[in-house]
Design a protein around this nucleic acid. Structure first.
Length: 806
RNA sequence: GCGCAUGUGGCGGAAUUGGCAGACGCACUAGACUUAGGAUCUAGCGUCUCACGACGUGGGGGUUCAAGUCCCUCCAUGCGCACCA
């Protein structure tokens, strides 16, 4: 009894052993092949680790442990994305400094991760809030600035006058502040922007070579939103001109009006006196609406005529110019040519305001709806008779040679709003001089430290709390002696996480961001596992920074994450997302305390495919725990000794087949991250082993190794009981013999026209003709084909014989 | 609205190239052992039928000797984007 499986005892024992022996320290030995396995690092929140985190971390850990046994030098690090809003909010509420909150949460996370037996090299631990780390985040910012990729712009933010602070989008609910329910308005403020749009094409193109889930690549493609079209210049009667972007230059003869976004700078200039009041009212109304309202209430088109007319670039016709909020200032040129016959939005608008609708492509019924398909062009001068493709080319040529426009590519991707009006983030290393110019802080003066502040409170002006710290804010430019003010904006949480994978390679380097040779050895990341919630922003930002680093010679791969995998969400036992309010949250600490980390790891991997969403089941955990108990008893008797039936023998042919099939299946599943089926095969092995009279020791050792990535503590313990004195971590992964992975006698089915009529046992290597003969000699077959003609016989080796008789 | 996934027993899920649907686990049923059982072991467990047998992978249609798997169509659920010109 006392010698039963005791996870709490053996898990502590082996965690201590691994720590004492630095078992998982990266060897950094160029002689062995490398494997870089990375989990998305967490924001250390106050509520601690979630079973969903554990799933992704366990998966990466299992692969890491497998690769070590396969002879790889494995980099498997962990760290903390510790800047961010929750700590700052907590600081505002309690007065406690965010760095203390952060440290407490990190200590808790580290304890939890260690309790799961994750094989990290803790010497590689990083923390984005550590000045030795954010020094290099600031350094990257300066490289971006030098290359013109960081610039300042006026951008609207969520300003809450009552709180005297700017809010993040997630802090605004229905136009009110989440805390206090105060009104929030859009207010333009000076902001740092990063020119990610300059990399749009490369970010799009290089997706093709990545081993990522296709759905995720698609999300990035949609986010980048490339569209190919033309820019067309319309002159305005009595004024200058404006450009529109269109993907359908072939419909130019169908234009019956133009629309400018309400914010378009030309609106004020071209609006006629009679229309001025209406236009102004419309603009004001549009400005009050949030982005959400503007899109949500999209069903009904609104707009106002400016009184001005554009001149059609080809026909010279007079085209009325309207303003409407269905045209977005942020996309294309903020102005469109409207073709109601062939664009549904324009159709709705034209119908409402009784603007003429002209057909220029045959194929639809434009009295009912816009026709957006392909067809023969009509009413289109030189394009008449052409199809869409020809007409687009033809119009693009005409525009180009007549100086009225050109072919043009537009992206939906916007530049990255990079500043936050917060204390708890990396300070932006820029000073603003008295003369109005700004200047980067010299690289050798980094890091620019966050000042210690007794109290963190809003500045009231919309600037970050740093503005209150006058000693820090007011400075002098050492070069010119001019008075200067430090930038009070800080960087967003995305900054530190956009390059952390690089720092893990060389975390203590004080001379450079990462040693060149080390970087060449370790990049790209061979496996990156994390949640799908980072599908767009984190992964796009990190790719962007990586490409910049590539351009300046810091890294030598075009992409950081060669293979990426999204673990699916773990739902509560009621099939709903886990949340405190639903009361269905499972705390990994509780599972570890009750069943042990090995059970938690094996259960989470056994639940289903790694990328699927799957509900938690308490009885499922019980089942996994029972499995590990069965494993224990298979090896150990009640006196705490290895079972007598484990002997240095070869084993029966039957058992050898299960043994080698298991090695083959588990090895293959490891490569494909199909852990659920690997575990089920190990269960099959255990079921068979329990039936056997005697068990070959070699088979049992192999099994312990197969199990060890999943249940490392149990495996270490059994490995030791089997007489090994060294850790199982680096024991060479078992090999299977192909001959033992196939049965020599198998059961096949005999079908008549696809219906199973009988089953027979045959040697697995029996040839097709012999199979046919055997099938035809069966009584049941003879009876079934009595009086019929055999049309065809299909025999598939090792599978079946199908007789077609009529 | 557009795009991308996913639909298999009571539940989680398995099923190389189209080739025995339901591996493995949970739950359940019966039995054994036991002072006891929420431990352990044995057997059963898709649906209908006493049985023979028939039916069965979201619905309908198709290709094929053979379809969970391929094609068409519809439905449902989830995720992403959402007036992107």
């Amino acid at each position: 009894m006392s010698q039963a499986y005791n996870p709490s005892k053996i898990e502590k024992k082996w965690q201590q052993y691994w720590e004492d022996h630095a078992t998982f320290k990266v060897k950094d030995d160029a002689a062995s092949p490398k494997f870089y396995a990375l989990s998305m690092f967490p924001y250390p929140s106050g509520s601690g680790l979630h079973v969903g985190h554990a799933e992704g971390y366990a998966a990466t850990d299992i692969v890491s442990r497998y690769k070590r046994m396969k002879g790889y030098d494995v980099l498997h690090p962990m760290g903390w994305d510790a800047f961010g809003l929750p700590a700052e909010q907590h600081a505002l509420n309690t007065g406690e400094h965010p760095k203390h909150i952060s440290k407490r949460n990190i200590d808790n996370y580290r304890r939890q991760l260690k309790s799961l037996g994750l094989s990290y090299d803790w010497d590689k631990e990083i923390n984005t809030t550590d000045p030795n780390y954010y020094k290099w985040t600031q350094w990257i910012f300066l490289q971006l600035y030098k290359r013109g990729l960081a610039y300042v712009d006026e951008v609207p933010v969520n300003w809450c006058p009552e709180l005297g602070t700017v809010l993040a989008n997630e802090e605004v609910i229905d136009g009110k502040s989440e805390r206090g329910g105060f009104p929030v308005i859009r207010k333009p403020m000076r902001q740092w922007m990063l020119k990610i749009t300059a990399y749009a094409e490369r970010l799009l193109e290089d997706l093709d070579d990545l081993d990522w889930p296709e759905s995720l690549k698609e999300m990035q493609r949609n986010w980048i939103g490339k569209s190919v079209g033309a820019e067309v210049t319309f002159s305005i009667e009595g004024h200058g001109s404006f450009d529109v972007f269109t993907t359908r230059p072939d419909t130019l003869f169908g234009v019956t009006y133009c629309v400018l976004a309400p914010e378009h700078p030309l609106v004020a200039e071209i609006t006629t006196a009679e229309q001025a009041d209406a236009v102004k009212a419309y603009q004001e109304n549009a400005a009050l609406k949030s982005d959400l309202e503007r899109t949500d209430l999209a069903k009904d088109k609104t707009g106002v005529f400016t009184g001005a007319y554009a001149i059609h670039p080809v026909s010279g016709a007079k085209i009325p110019i309207w303003i409407s909020d269905y045209v977005l200032i942020s996309y294309g040129t903020g102005a469109i040519m409207a073709v109601p016959g062939h664009d549904q939005r324009d159709f709705e608008f034209a119908t409402k305001f009784e603007i003429p609708i002209v057909e220029v492509i045959k194929g639809g019924d434009i009295s009912q709806e816009a026709y957006t398909g392909s067809g023969e062009h009509v009413n289109s001068d030189f394009m008449n008779g052409m199809d869409n493709e020809q007409a687009i080319d033809s119009m693009n040529q005409w525009l180009e040679s007549n100086g009225k426009g050109k072919k043009k590519v537009t992206y939906r991707l916007r530049d990255w709003l990079f500043s936050r009006q917060r204390y708890w983030g990396e300070p932006i290393p820029i000073i603003h001089l008295e003369d109005g110019t700004m200047k980067p802080i010299p690289e050798d003066q980094l890091p620019l430290l966050l000042p210690e502040m007794k109290e963190i409170k809003p500045s009231g002006t919309g600037e970050s709390p740093l503005a209150n710290e006058t000693d820090w804010v007011n400075t002098v430019d050492p070069e010119t002696g001019q008075k200067a003010r430090r930038e009070t904006n800080t960087m967003p949480q995305w900054a530190g996480s956009s390059w952390y994978y690089l720092r893990y390679i060389d975390p203590h380097n004080n001379e450079e961001i990462c040693d060149k040779e080390k970087q060449e050895r370790w990049l790209p990341i061979d496996l990156y596992i994390g949640g799908v919630e980072h599908a767009v922003l984190h992964l796009l930002y990190a790719r962007f920074w990586h490409k910049v680093l590539y351009d300046i010679g810091v890294v030598s791969t075009k992409e950081p994450f060669q293979k990426l995998f999204n673990q699916g969400m773990i739902l509560g036992d009621n099939n709903e997302k886990m949340s405190k309010s639903r009361g269905n949250v499972v705390n990994p600490d509780d599972i570890v305390a009750q069943y042990g980390a090995d059970t938690l790891r094996v259960y989470e991997m056994f639940m289903g495919p790694l990328d699927a969403a799957k509900p938690w089941s308490t009885t499922g955990v019980d089942g996994t725990y029972r499995f590990l108990n069965r494993v224990w008893r298979l090896f150990m008797n009640e006196d705490g000794n290895v079972q007598d039936k484990i002997q240095p023998i070869e084993g029966s042919d039957e058992f050898k087949r299960v043994w080698h099939k298991t090695i083959k299946k588990v090895s293959a599943d490891m490569e494909l991250l199909q852990f659920n089926t690997a575990i089920s095969q190990m269960m099959v092995f255990v079921n068979e082993a329990n039936k056997a009279e005697q068990l070959p020791k070699k088979a049992m050792e192999d099994f312990v190794q197969l199990l060890s990535p999943f249940a490392p503590h149990l495996a270490e313990e059994l490995w030791e009981k089997l007489g090994h004195t060294d850790t199982i971590t680096y024991a060479a992964w078992p090999q299977f013999e192909e001959q033992w992975t196939v049965d020599n006698e198998i059961e096949i089915v005999v079908q008549i026209k696809g219906k199973i009529i009988d089953r027979i046992h045959i040697p697995s290597d029996m040839e097709q003709e012999e199979m046919q003969e055997m099938a035809l000699s069966l009584d049941k077959v003879k009876a079934a084909i009595e009086g019929k003609t055999i049309r065809k016989i299909i025999a598939v080796k090792g599978k079946l014989v199908n007789i077609v008789a009529t």
